[in-house]
Design a protein around this nucleic acid. Structure first.
Lengths: 368, 368
DNA sequence: CAGTTTTCCGAAACCGATTTTGTTGACTTA
DNA sequence: TAAGTCAACAAAATCGGTTTCGGAAAACTG
């Protein structure tokens, strides 16, 4: 039996039973104008022949694909975002229960993303989209709204009205982060974030600022470092902030990747993360547990988020009002060991680091 | 403009130009029995109206979906495999160039996997499958072979004939690993692997054994530990092997996750990975670079693997002989800092560990 | 028992493309 | 000049379903 050929069609079933194919279709779609006896005979034949309706044919008539799409932004060779991997896992699990499928595409630039959306829409391969990593001014969302194509966003934009979204309360969470660090005794708190075009990056920075303000701490722009959202960016951010004349004793990072880089930098220069410098991440990546020290981080379940967003999109497709489908969640602080009371003052820290930066790093990679 | 309604069809184009829709179709499919003038007029109309053919309708007639499928095995809540994330990224990139799409499904058990395959095949949603994480005796491959449905495997099975696959030479790679450790001065080398139902896990164990044999080292089953393929498994494996009366001074791990766990265990008991105990991983996960110490590991590019497998599947769909599409690659050793000459004899190591195991761990997580 | 409803199902239209078959007029050819 | 060729397209069949329409028989009415 090859691909299409040989597979049993609704006509085969109809012929086998001796009814019209419309009748078979009606039985399979639970119309109630079929007598019990024919219904039984048809169901039996369906079973005997192993008939399964062709999704393609059904979709053509119905105009639905029973398929959702997601276009994943990927940096140039930067590798997959571990958060997204779990997010997709969550989506797939939810869709599995609903009998839907997920079409995954990657895009390596903003234009490419829009093109992928266009293509998928024009060729009618998906019924709706899940949009991730929303930007403050998001071209995808603008496009989808304009063309009135169903979608749900994971994350908001500067104007969060008129569409369905699920997001974390970034501002509250990062204000909490500041409060937590303050309660540990930190007075100078640095922030390492990502490009402010990304909505969550902007909001986390704002949350950081709000947290400072609420505690009456002064805001110092020197303590805010915007970097690539990667481990490398974390290293650069830590370096920039810790090299300050009066460095922060705690680093609040917008993502775990940044925090991992920051920790790496600290270790490299002999600063003990968790006491000499406190590092807080965000994402709750599983691998954080196995770092040295294990990373204290805010966690939202990526899997839950995926499942939730998927179900929201299904609701939208079923005709729910997108406006009514907007929900904000909180992330929980998972305390591990990268945070603690400061072991020295910013000035002392600066002294220690000044020495070390001029000499060799304390311990580096070998063999490279 | 809502989902299906309003989108321009081939009929619209035909009417607009004043030709039959078959003519439009022939123009778009590069038939050569159309005059240049009508061709131009039609092409212009296509552009003006922004017409894109419906994939559904085309597929129905053609019997092809231009969509590939992948069913991802996911452990019960264990989270997504970072390797798979990059693998999928690679597939998506390759398919993007070819104008194909990728349908992603997750499955949480063997039965569920087969059911997903069945459903996708029966409903004709995909043209072929990419099978990952092959098992020694793989039900998916058996099923697909039996039903003569196109697929390519990433990894082999006990009988690697009759289908297309791409795999790493696990045996050679792990024999290399043993040789490397031996050349560093290690004589007692342990292996932490995964369930032997997974083909790569079995082959890596065999490679480890072959490596020992080639060097004339004795094989000691005590030094082989089979664990869950997770960080947790790595911890358990390290504990089991290092608690031996004569523990290994080097741990060869089947995956990075295992190695990460093993390192965690070492650190917890004050053993310095890279000198007191050497740990070797496999996968080349990006995060390995940011561990303490950075993980020495074998690397294959998951992205390349994905791209490669995708292209192979396209070849199969184009009629290539699967038998001829089998290829074996090598993984490269990336030396970072978790390997080195042993700092003590197995006996000394046992002594150190005996003390520490009975007391408190050297440094653990706090706040839990 | 004739007229009206229901019940149940066959026939056909339809979804939007591709592909096959048929038709037309222009152009060759004998 | 009648017959045959060919280029260029129209018309219709087809893919495998869903849905609309309508009709025969059975079941109710009064």
């Amino acid at each position: 039996m090859s691909r299409t050929r040989g597979s049993v069609t609704i006509d085969d079933v109809a012929r086998h039973v001796g009814v019209a194919k419309g009748t078979v279709s009606r039985v399979l779609n639970n119309y109630n104008d079929i007598s019990e006896t024919t219904k039984k005979r048809i169901l039996q034949a369906v079973k005997d022949l192993g008939y399964q309706p062709s999704a393609t044919a059904r979709n053509l008539k119905r105009g639905r694909q029973d398929t959702l799409g997601i276009v994943i932004p990927v940096g140039h060779g930067s590798g997959a975002d571990p958060f997204l991997a779990e997010f997709i896992d969550g989506i797939a699990r939810a869709l599995d229960e609903l009998g839907l499928d997920l079409l995954v595409t990657t895009a390596h630039s903003r234009d490419h993303t829009i093109e992928s959306l266009k293509r998928l829409i024009a060729r009618r391969k998906v019924d709706g989209f899940i949009v991730t990593r929303t930007e403050v001014d998001d071209a995808r969302i603008a496009y989808l709204k304009e063309h009135n194509f169903p979608f749900v966003a994971h994350g908001r934009t500067s104007d969060p009205s008129g569409y369905a979204w699920f997001d974390i309360d970034n501002e509250a969470t990062f204000a909490d982060g500041v409060r937590h660090l303050y309660s540990l005794g930190h007075q100078r708190i640095g922030f390492i974030g990502g490009t402010l075009e990304l909505n969550f990056a902007l909001q986390r920075l704002q949350g950081y600022r709000q947290g400072l303000e609420a505690l009456g701490l002064p805001r110092d722009e020197e303590l805010e470092s915007v970097q690539d959202l990667s481990e490398r960016g974390g290293i650069a951010g830590a370096e920039a902030l810790l090299a300050l004349p009066s460095p922060p004793t705690a680093l609040l990072c917008a993502t775990d990747a940044l925090a991992i880089g920051a920790i790496q930098f600290c270790r490299k220069f002999g600063l003990k993360p968790g006491s000499d410098v406190t590092v807080l991440g965000y994402d709750g990546l599983p691998v954080g547990e196995y770092l040295d020290p294990p990373l204290t981080t805010f966690s939202q379940s990526a899997q839950d988020a995926g499942a939730r967003v998927a179900r929201m999109l299904v609701d939208v497709l079923d005709g729910a009002d997108p406006q009514a489908l907007q929900s904000l969640a909180r992330a929980d602080l998972i305390r591990r060991a990268s945070d603690g009371a400061p072991s020295m003052t910013p000035e002392a820290l600066a002294g220690v680091l000044r020495d070390r930066l001029n000499k060799q790093p304390h311990s580096g990679n070998k063999g490279e």
